[in-house]
């Protein structure tokens, strides 16, 4: 049993079944990636774990407790944080205000968490008064990660963090993700950059048509002939 577990998940969009019994899971201090072809239901897994989409079967467990029936806001209160693929910052607000909004639900002093974020991403401290919308792609992603960290989450869900950014920035973003993992978060991400993502992941889930096609450590999947042939282009 992992810290965050989605077990035997079924979900539909209207009448179209998207998830058909897939399972994912990640422990704290671990990085797990969900890969697979378009339409496999990768992002839907994220939505289901967050409660943005109801499941018809299966269960979502956090630290052993069933959270399947809780609302998104309640799950966020319990330590889940989500960084959406697009529009993951408040563009006309300053970096500092973006982070402050991340801590919206907290009533204690969040200066310590703020310091933690600034230590992890020093550039954000430098640019804290600047509007987030004026930053570069990689820096925006740091704002998005930082905002998600402000609730002091135990689990971070990242939806295609490298979508639409240049290769140099991708390296920077992957480095940031590893930093999140080192900070003892459970990190689960959906990624299109299969090869690169699997090479840094502790665990990988290859999804095909809403079901687990392959599961294993990142390295094992990279070396699996079938996975290489079907998803990595040889």
């Amino acid at each position: 049993m992992t810290y965050l577990t989605g077990k035997n998940l079924f979900a539909t969009y209207g009448t179209v079944p998207i998830l058909r019994g897939c399972s994912v899971g990640v422990n704290r201090g671990e990085l797990a990636v969900i890969v697979g072809p378009n339409g496999a239901g990768k992002s839907t897994v994220m939505k289901v774990l967050l409660g943005l989409l109801p499941i018809s079967e299966g269960e979502v467990l956090l630290d052993g407790k069933d959270i399947s029936t809780l609302s998104t806001q309640q799950r966020i209160g319990l330590g889940l944080a989500f960084v959406p693929q697009n529009n993951n910052i408040f563009p006309t607000m300053s970096v500092a205000e973006n982070l402050e909004m991340g801590a919206f639900l907290r009533h204690d002093d969040c200066q310590a968490t703020l310091d933690e974020v600034y230590t992890l991403f020093p550039i954000l401290f430098e640019k804290r008064q600047q509007l987030a919308g004026q930053l570069s792609g990689g820096q925006r992603q740091q704002v998005a990660f930082g905002r998600a960290m402000m609730t002091q989450p135990t689990v971070l869900l990242l939806d295609e963090p490298t979508a639409g950014v240049s290769p140099i920035v991708i390296d920077e973003i992957f480095a940031n993700i590893l930093a999140l993992k080192e900070a003892n978060k459970a990190v689960l991400m959906v990624e299109q950059n299969t090869q690169q993502a699997l090479s840094i992941a502790d665990k990988g889930f290859v999804l095909v048509a809403g079901k687990n096609a392959h599961t294993g450590t990142g390295k094992a999947l990279l070396n699996d002939d079938e996975v290489r042939r079907d998803f990595l282009g040889g």
Binding site: F90, M101, L105
Partner: peptide
């Protein structure tokens, strides 16, 4: 004010505002 900033956040990006617990 905190609620004022939340209003701007809501205006900027409604989905993210909801994800932030606003």
């Amino acid at each position: 004010t905190k609620i004022g900033k939340a209003m701007r956040a809501f205006s900027d990006n409604e989905d993210l505002a909801l994800l932030s617990g606003i």
